[in-house]
Amino acid sequence: MPSTRLVGLIGTAIRQQRQSRELSQCELAELAGISQATVARIEGGDRAPSIAVLERVLAAMDVQLVIGVEPLDAHLDARIDDLAAQPIAERIDGLGLDELLDRLPDVPQVLTGSTAALLQGAPVPVDALEIALRWRDAKPFTRWLEANYGQRWNARWGEFGGVWLEPEEPGEHRWSTRYGEIRATMCDELPETVEVRHGGRSYQVVPLVELELREPRAAELLRRYRNRQLTSGN
């Protein structure tokens, strides 16, 4: 987790700029004259870069930092309102959620993370399917990944590929597949769920009150959304 909100925002901004230019972390590091590990720590929010390093990284992408102030959490409120204006059905379709769920192996699983939050009406960003899987079902899941061009996230290089697919192997439980990205929480037993319905389809999801989101941006939005719900009495 980032040491401060600002460090997390800087890391997110750099990652978004790098990805929009289709640069790997190694390529950006070479352009900026720093190590790939430094880029990874900055993007992950684990390190606050010095002003000099930050300027070099941004200049390597032909952008610069603009500083301003705003009321606390105003950026979160604006983002929440923007996401809330988008119909859930459209966001489900945009994620390709139903097709990916239909393609998954026939093993017990439940929706968790930002995916579960979205399906319960929380305005959080979702760019991958998040599921909980039991360790005992890891092997059939691995076979499915192999059959569907799965590549596992390589944290060292900041991209997919080059590491073992199997969930038992060290590394993040995050894969790209021919049908979209999957992030898994591996557990001995699946968590308790509630049922939600959209467009005539039912989904088993971890209850919103029990969700803890790992992605810093989404976690901040969910925290703010919950606070707003409490304040409004909903």
Rank of each mutant, 00 (worst) to 15 (best):
M1P: 14
P2Y: 08
P2A: 15
T4C: 10
R5G: 06
V7E: 00
G8D: 11
I10P: 07
G11D: 03
T12L: 13
R15G: 01
Q17T: 07
R18C: 03
R18I: 01
S20F: 07
R21F: 07
R21D: 02
S24V: 01
E27A: 01
E30V: 00
E30N: 05
A32H: 01
G33W: 02
S35P: 02
Q36W: 00
Q36L: 04
Q36Y: 00
V39K: 02
R41Q: 13
E43I: 00
G45V: 07
G45L: 07
D46K: 13
R47E: 11
A48H: 06
A48M: 09
S50C: 03
I51N: 06
A52K: 10
L54T: 04
L54N: 05
E55H: 11
R56S: 10
V57T: 09
L58Y: 08
L58F: 08
A59G: 14
A60V: 01
D62F: 05
D62S: 14
Q64G: 13
Q64Y: 13
V66I: 09
V66Y: 12
G68I: 02
L72T: 12
D77S: 13
A78R: 15
A78D: 02
D81N: 07
L83V: 08
P87H: 09
P87E: 08
A89W: 04
E90P: 02
R91Q: 15
I92E: 03
D93G: 10
D93K: 14
G94F: 03
G96F: 08
L97R: 05
L97Y: 08
L101V: 06
R103N: 12
V107A: 09
Q109Y: 12
V110K: 05
V110P: 04
L111D: 08
L111A: 03
A117W: 09
P123C: 07
P123M: 03
V124S: 14
V124Q: 09
W135L: 04
R136G: 08
D137C: 06
F141W: 12
R143E: 15
L145I: 00
A147W: 05
Y149E: 15
G150V: 02
A155L: 05
A155Q: 10
R156I: 03
W157F: 06
G158C: 11
V163G: 13
L165E: 09
L165A: 03
E166Y: 14
E168M: 13
P170Q: 07
E172T: 11
H173G: 08
W175F: 02
T177N: 04
R178W: 10
E181G: 01
I182D: 03
T185S: 11
T185F: 14
M186Q: 06
C187F: 01
P191C: 01
E192Q: 08
V194G: 01
V196G: 00
R197G: 05
R197Q: 14
H198R: 11
H198L: 08
H198D: 05
H198F: 05
R201N: 06
Y203V: 00
V206E: 02
L208Y: 09
E210M: 08
L213T: 01
P216N: 00
E220Q: 15
E220I: 04
E220C: 10
R223N: 14
R223E: 15
Q229L: 15
L230P: 01
T231F: 09
T231R: 04
G233N: 12
N234F: 05
N234S: 11
